[in-house]
Lab assay of single mutants.
Amino acid sequence: DETGKFLVLALYDYQEKSPREVTMKKGDILTLLNSTNKDWWKVEVNGRQGFVPAAYVKFL
Rank of each mutant, 00 (worst) to 15 (best):
D28N: 06
E16R: 13
R48F: 06
V43L: 03
T23I: 03
K25A: 09
I29Q: 05
R48C: 05
S35W: 15
K5N: 11
A54L: 02
K26Q: 11
I29A: 04
V43G: 00
N34E: 15
S18K: 07
D28I: 03
K5M: 12
I29C: 06
L60F: 12
V45A: 12
L32R: 01
K25V: 10
G47F: 05
G4H: 15
G27W: 05
D39C: 14
K25P: 00
K58N: 07
Q15C: 10
L30P: 01
G4Q: 14
E44V: 08
T3A: 13
T36C: 15
G4K: 14
Q49A: 12
L9E: 11
Y12Q: 13
K42C: 11
T3F: 12
K17W: 04
G47H: 06
K38F: 07
K25W: 08
E44D: 09
D39K: 13
A10C: 10
K42Y: 15
W41T: 04
T3Y: 14
T3M: 12
V57F: 05
Y14A: 01
V22Y: 03
L33E: 02
S35Y: 12
V45R: 13
Y56W: 07
K5P: 13
E16Y: 04
N34T: 07
G50A: 03
L32Q: 00
F51K: 02
E21T: 08
V45D: 03
S18V: 05
T36L: 10
T31M: 12
T23V: 03
Y14H: 04
N37V: 05
F51E: 04
R20A: 14
L9T: 10
D28F: 04
K58T: 15
N34F: 06
V43I: 08
L30V: 08
L9K: 08
R48K: 13
P19T: 10
T31R: 14
N46D: 12
K26I: 06
D13S: 08
Q15T: 15
K58Y: 11
S35D: 11
V43H: 00
T3I: 14
V8H: 03
T31P: 13
F59H: 10
V43D: 00
S18M: 07
V22S: 02
Y12S: 10
V22L: 15
V8S: 02
N34D: 15
W41Q: 01
K25I: 08
I29Y: 06
T36W: 10
V43Y: 00
G50Q: 01
K5S: 11
K26A: 13
D13K: 02
G27M: 03
L33G: 01
E2N: 14
F6E: 09
N46Q: 10
Y12C: 12
L30Q: 01
E21L: 05
Q15K: 12
D39H: 15
K38I: 09
P53L: 03
E2H: 14
Y14K: 01
V52Q: 00
K17E: 08
V52F: 01
W40P: 00
E2C: 13
L33D: 01
N46K: 10
G27R: 02
F51V: 07
V8K: 01
G4F: 12
V45H: 15
D39E: 12
K42I: 13
G47N: 08
N46P: 05
K25Y: 11
A54K: 07
Q49C: 09
W41P: 02
Y14T: 01
K26W: 03
R48P: 01
Y14N: 01
M24F: 10
N34M: 07
L33Q: 03
T31I: 15
F59W: 10
S35V: 09
L9I: 15
E21W: 04
Y12H: 13
D39R: 12
N37D: 14
A10H: 01
R20Q: 14
I29N: 03
E21D: 06
F51D: 04
G50S: 01
K38C: 10
K25D: 04
Y12F: 14
R20Y: 14
Q49W: 07
F59S: 09
A55K: 15
V52G: 00
T31Q: 10
S18G: 13
E44S: 10
L7S: 08
L33V: 12
E16C: 10
L32H: 02
D13I: 02
G47W: 03
K17R: 12
L11V: 09
P19S: 12
F6R: 13
W40I: 03
V8D: 00
K5Q: 15
D28C: 05
L30H: 02
R48L: 07
W41V: 09
N37P: 04
L32A: 03
V45G: 07
L60I: 14
N37Y: 08
V22H: 03
K26V: 08
V22F: 11
K17P: 04
L33M: 08
L32M: 05
K17N: 11
Y56Q: 05
K58P: 01
N46G: 12
L30E: 00
I29L: 09
S35L: 08
K26S: 07
K17T: 13
T36G: 10
D1T: 13
K17L: 10
K42S: 07
N34A: 09
P19E: 12
R20C: 13
T31W: 11
T3R: 10
V52H: 00
K58S: 12
G4P: 15
F51H: 05
F59C: 13
F59L: 15
V45M: 13
L32V: 12
W41L: 07
L60W: 11
Y12E: 11
G50K: 02
G50F: 04
L32D: 00
T36K: 13
N37W: 07
A10W: 03
K5H: 14
R20E: 13
T23M: 04
L33H: 05
T31C: 10
K26D: 02
T23W: 04
K17C: 10
N37H: 13
D1N: 14
F6N: 11
F6M: 15
G27L: 03
W41D: 00
L9Q: 11
D28M: 12
F59N: 08
L32S: 02
L7T: 08
L30C: 10
K5Y: 12
S35A: 15
A10P: 01
G50C: 02
L7Y: 15
Y56A: 11
T31L: 15
P19I: 09
I29H: 05
K25C: 08
K42Q: 11
R20I: 13
V52R: 00
Y14Q: 01
L9R: 09
M24R: 00
S18C: 08
E16W: 05
V43C: 05
T3L: 14
I29W: 05
E21V: 05
N37I: 06
K38E: 11
N34K: 07
P53W: 03
G47T: 05
V45Q: 10
T23E: 03
K38V: 11
L30S: 02
K17Q: 15
E2D: 14
Y56F: 14
K5D: 08
V57N: 00
T36I: 09
K58G: 13
D13G: 05
E44G: 06
V22K: 01
D28S: 06
N46C: 08
A10Q: 01
S18H: 11
S18E: 09
Y14R: 02
N37C: 09
T31H: 11
E16A: 15
G27C: 06
E21F: 06
F51Q: 03
L30G: 08
L30W: 01
S18R: 08
R48H: 08
D1S: 14
K42M: 15
E44C: 11
K38P: 15
K38S: 12
E21G: 11
V8R: 01
S18P: 04
Q49L: 08
G4C: 14
L32F: 05
L60D: 06
D39Q: 12
W40E: 04
P19A: 12
T36E: 14
Y14D: 01
K42D: 04
K38L: 09
F59E: 09
I29F: 06
V8W: 07
V57A: 02
E21Y: 05
V52E: 00
I29E: 04
F6A: 12
D13P: 06
L60Y: 13
T3N: 14
V52M: 02
P53D: 01
L9D: 01
T3C: 13
S35F: 10
K38W: 07
K42G: 05
D13H: 05
L11T: 05
L30D: 00
L11Q: 06
K17I: 07
S18D: 13
V57S: 00
E44H: 05
Y56V: 05
R48Y: 06
N46L: 07
N34P: 03
A10G: 03
E21P: 04
T23N: 06
N46Y: 08
L33S: 02
V8L: 15
S35I: 09
L33K: 05
N46T: 06
E21C: 06
K25N: 09
